[in-house]
């Protein structure tokens, strides 16, 4: 389905995850972040960029992998994206929700 965010039409799935990463930009991420009361900082963007790179390289995401990436610690990840570190960060990064249990 299509949705207009930050003045741009993007395609999303039923959970609101973007289905085409090429449509992503930082304004869209900032707008989506408001829904979670998150104000994006350069650190947030750094994490989102890392997640997008992993997705492009087909690396399955887990909290452990992100925590050992050197980009962000697990504790910081929870501070940056409270109430759902991977669920929310992947949504803001414009990539699919990870299907991992760990």
């Amino acid at each position: 389905m299509d949705k207009v965010i930050a003045g741009k039409t993007i395609s999303v799935n039923e959970e609101g995850y973007m289905t085409d990463l090429s449509q992503w930009n930082e304004d869209i991420a900032s707008e989506m972040a408001k829904e979670y009361d998150i104000e994006l900082t350069p650190k947030h963007i750094e994490v989102l960029t890392y997640l997008q790179e992993q997705f492009k390289n087909n690396v399955p995401l887990s909290i452990r992998k992100v925590g050992s990436s050197g980009v962000v610690s697990i504790k910081e990840l929870y501070e940056l994206f409270p109430n759902g570190p991977l669920k929310i960060s992947t949504k803001l990064a414009g990539i699919p929700k990870p299907a991992s249990c760990i």
Binding site: P60, I63, R64, I102
Partner: peptide, 18 residues
Amino acid sequence: KLDMPPVREFMDIIKASG
């Protein structure tokens, strides 16, 4: 293989998550 951490590391992850 499934990226499941060893017990101690998994406990550390739970602690880091709050």
